[in-house]
Every structure is written in structure tokens, then in C-alpha cells.
Amino acid sequence: MEKGIFSKVFVKYPLEEAFKKIREFGFNTVQFNFANVGLPSLPSHVSKEILEQIRKACEKTGISISVISGTFNTLELDNETRKRNIKGFKNVVESAKKLNVPYVSISTGSFNQEDFWSPHPDNHTKKAWRYLLESLDEMLDIASRNEVIIVIEPEQSNVISTVEDTRRLMNHYRSPYLKVLFDAANIITVDDFGQLENKINSSLKELSEYIAVAHCKDCLVSMREVKFAPVGKGSLPLNQYLKELKKYYDGPVIMHGLAEEDVAFALKNIHF
């Protein structure tokens, strides 16, 4: 498996300097965000000059881009905002094609219009699925025309939150342009307290045929809450997770949910 990290962990640096620091830590690849070149995550325009800047930074540092973030709320209720988001997503996908990046990551959305990483009581209704599928129909058309694969991440606060949700979505589309970004921290709930390894292992087995990208994130789990923590400082058996992941997967594993000052500790304690 290839060791990677979110480029946004180093967003305060110019791109080439950020990639040099990432390389110095021993990473080979990144999940890229256009924030690293001063643009929104869903840019309204990506110039040839920006794309060339990214290419040169990769060439000079030896860092590859495994996946580009194209995340927005697929359950956006304001029509004009939704149109802008789809346009921005299209720009990300077209940029991925030009940069020879195979994957663009997305959220499956929330009816919480203030923060789509937060839950809403209607997220698991027929209405939520209808909104999600309407967005994905359009997004998959864009992805397929550019031969770029969308990777969705099961997430507790979003429409797709469980293994069962994920398989249902995959079975609905049966598309080579829709795969899974697996993050052990995002499939854990308070009900899994005391059996974290079992939950992770069973989820990996169930979703193994769909996994195209993997994350390495951590969280603190109690009977009351699941709270994200820097990698290596939470409750998850991350080394066991990575060992199990290797049975099914040999692609990029992207660290995130940590600050630059947490990276050395994470690398000391987590073994890829």
C-alpha cells in the first residue's frame, strides 16, 4: 500500500514547499485539494497555469496525486447553489483528467444546510435518496465522459452511512465510475464500543470489491460519543485495520484528521 496524506494538512505553504515537506515525512502521494493553490475546493475555473504549477510540483518533489477532493453537499436545497456546485465539481473532474488523477472524492450529503458533515433527521428517508440520486446521475455522467472515478465515503452524518447503504448504492448504479473510499473511523458508532476491530473487519470484507481509495483517520470511542482524534491518539486499532486492509487492497492510504505537528507521532505509531 502507498502511504499518503491530505495536502490540506500543509495548506499554509506554497504548493511546491508543501509537497517537499510531505515528501520529507516519507509520504509518496496525496489527496489533493485546490485550496493548496489558493482556489476553493470546487473552483469556478482552473487555469492552464494552475494545472502546470501542480504538474511541476509533482515532478520536482516526486509526490503523486492519488485523488482530488470534489466534495460538496449533494442534498443542497438552493437550486442556484446546486448549479454552482455541479459546475465546480465538473471543473475538478476535468482537472483530474488533465492531471491523470484517477479518482475524485465526494460526500453523499446531508439535509443539514449549515454543515453537511452534520446529521439531519431526514438523511435516511426516501426523499434524501431521491436528492442524492438526482445529483449522482448528473455527476456520474460528468465522471464517465472524462473517464474519472467518483469515490464515495460512508459517513455517519450523511445519507450513505452504513455498509448496507453503500452496497445498495453500488447495486443501484453498477457503474465502473463509482467506487468506495473506505475510512474505518467513519463507519464506527457508539454501538460498536468494545468491538471496534470486529466492526472494521466485517465492513472491509463486505465492501472489499468496491474499495478504490482508503483513509487512515482516528477517533475516540465511548458509549456516549465518537469524537475524531489525531492519528494514533484515538481508540481505533489502526495497525490491525491496515493489516486487515492489505488482504483486500493495495492502493493509496491517505492520512487525515490531523495537524502538521501530529504527523511525526502518527508515523511513529502507525505502520503501513
Rank of each mutant, 00 (worst) to 15 (best):
I22S: 03
F6V: 03
I106C: 01
K246E: 15
P154A: 04
I211T: 05
V231E: 06
P40C: 13
I22F: 01
R82K: 15
L245K: 02
N36H: 05
K227Q: 14
L75E: 10
K205E: 15
Q195L: 12
K205I: 00
L207M: 12
S118A: 15
G26R: 08
K247G: 11
D192V: 13
E2H: 06
I187H: 05
G194K: 12
H45W: 13
L181T: 01
K246Q: 14
E153G: 04
D250L: 01
K199W: 00
F89H: 10
E260C: 05
S110V: 09
N28R: 13
F72Q: 06
E244F: 02
E49K: 13
D191T: 05
H120E: 02
G234Y: 06
T125W: 12
E260V: 07
P14A: 00
T189Q: 11
V151L: 06
V151Y: 03
V159A: 03
I211K: 09
E164M: 02
E153K: 01
N186P: 12
F193A: 12
K247C: 08
E16A: 00
K217N: 05
D141K: 15
E49N: 09
N100V: 01
E147W: 04
G232D: 00
S107Y: 12
L178H: 11
G251I: 02
K20P: 00
K199A: 01
A264E: 15
F6H: 07
I149N: 07
K217T: 11
A259R: 15
C216Y: 02
A212W: 09
E17K: 15
P237V: 08
S64I: 02
F272Q: 03
T71A: 14
S110P: 01
N91W: 05
A35K: 13
I211Q: 10
N36Y: 04
D115R: 06
H215E: 11
R145L: 08
I54R: 09
L207C: 07
K90E: 15
R174M: 12
W129L: 11
A184V: 06
K97F: 07
N186A: 07
F193T: 10
K247W: 06
L196A: 04
